[in-house]
Amino acid sequence: MTDFEILKKISECPGVPGYEQAIRKMIIAEITDLVDEVYVDSMGSVIGKRKGKEAKAVMVTAHMDEIGFMVSHIDDQGFIKFQPLGGFDPKTLTSQRVIVHGREDVIGVMGTKPIHIMSPEDRNKAPKIEDYFIDTGLKPEEVKAKIRVGDTITRERELILMGDCYNGKSLDNRVSVFILIQCLRALKGRELPYDVYAVFTVQEEVGLRGAINAAGHIDPAFGFNLDVTIAYDVPGSQPHENVTQLGKGTAIKILDGSVICDYRMVSFLKEAADAQGIKWQNEILPAGGTDTAAIQKFGKMGAITGGISIPLRNMHQVIETVHIDDVNASIELLKQALTTLDQYDWSFV
């Protein structure tokens, strides 16, 4: 199976926060032969442990959940109202296909008031989540037979190659799931300095919940989080707004809205990248949180933690885009970090 085929399978698999069953099963199948032990914790995060020379825990996270929706009401005409699971940009939802995961999967379309019958004032307003409904094309009795309140909803999108980029749904954060699996595959049989816990976390999009739980029972000394970050390098943007740029390399997190990364880890990652000629860029993300914060704060004594981030356009929209070179650079940097972690001076200076 090619890298594209693996990522396509991971990207298109459903798994909204709290309902990660399908993607969890897929991850377990992918990593079982790559680690010494696999287990699932109380919240549903998948942990693959690789034993190192020393029993010092290194926690690497990639959240498996994707933003989506949950059915909250079915009206007498069979139209479905819903609640978001994670943050969405509502303006991108008009006329988009979705999959309602009921007693069977049902295709639907996001609908809202047509522009032709909007007031002039409404035409100039951005739509809100509550303005939308889902139309399945089924009779009301069929909808109610197949779908219940509480069923989950995901986007109906195929991953494609678009130039030098991957383009599809849920690359936040399935591209990081792919990167972590590929790193485990590359490190199979290689000796590691410390025990590595590859943690595919749940419920990140609703408050870092799975990573908080996992950090509590793993109690890491070091941590790396894999997640996407903003690439706002498009027409109309200002250089200071870019955060990162697509195709310019993996991003080394300095801070986001939830964490200030340990300066020692930031320096370590930059030196590790330079030693291998890996393209990298700085990441300062002014808002939004990641599992980086959970790793850093929720072990018994905290952890020396950093983030390897993948530049992404159109975050939290219907389709998202990452550059193949940035993905590959992220894999290479994580490999280098995990194999040289014991060679750095971690004392405070």
Rank of each mutant, 00 (worst) to 15 (best):
S42C: 09
S42W: 01
M43C: 04
M43T: 13
M43F: 11
G44Q: 10
S45A: 12
S45K: 00
S45R: 05
I47T: 07
I47Y: 03
I47N: 05
G48C: 01
K53P: 01
E54D: 13
A55K: 14
V58P: 04
V58R: 07
M59I: 07
M59C: 03
M59W: 01
T61M: 09
A62D: 07
A62M: 09
A62T: 12
H63S: 04
M64P: 12
D65F: 04
D65M: 05
E66D: 05
E66H: 03
E66K: 06
I67R: 04
G68M: 11
F69R: 00
M70A: 14
M70T: 15
V71T: 08
V71Y: 09
V71E: 12
V71S: 11
V71A: 02
S72E: 04
S72A: 09
S72G: 03
H73W: 10
H73T: 02
I74L: 07
D75F: 02
D75E: 04
D76G: 11
D76T: 14
I80T: 01
K81N: 12
F82T: 08
Q83A: 14
P84R: 01
P84F: 01
P84A: 06
P84Y: 00
L85I: 08
G86K: 03
G86D: 03
G87Q: 02
G87N: 02
D89F: 14
D89S: 12
D89I: 14
D89R: 13
P90Q: 08
K91C: 09
K91N: 09
T94H: 11
T94E: 11
S95K: 14
S95D: 14
Q96W: 05
Q96F: 02
V100Y: 06
V100K: 06
H101M: 09
R103S: 13
R103D: 15
R103Y: 10
E104Q: 13
E104N: 07
E104C: 04
D105S: 15
V106D: 01
G108N: 06
G108D: 05
G108E: 03
G108Y: 02
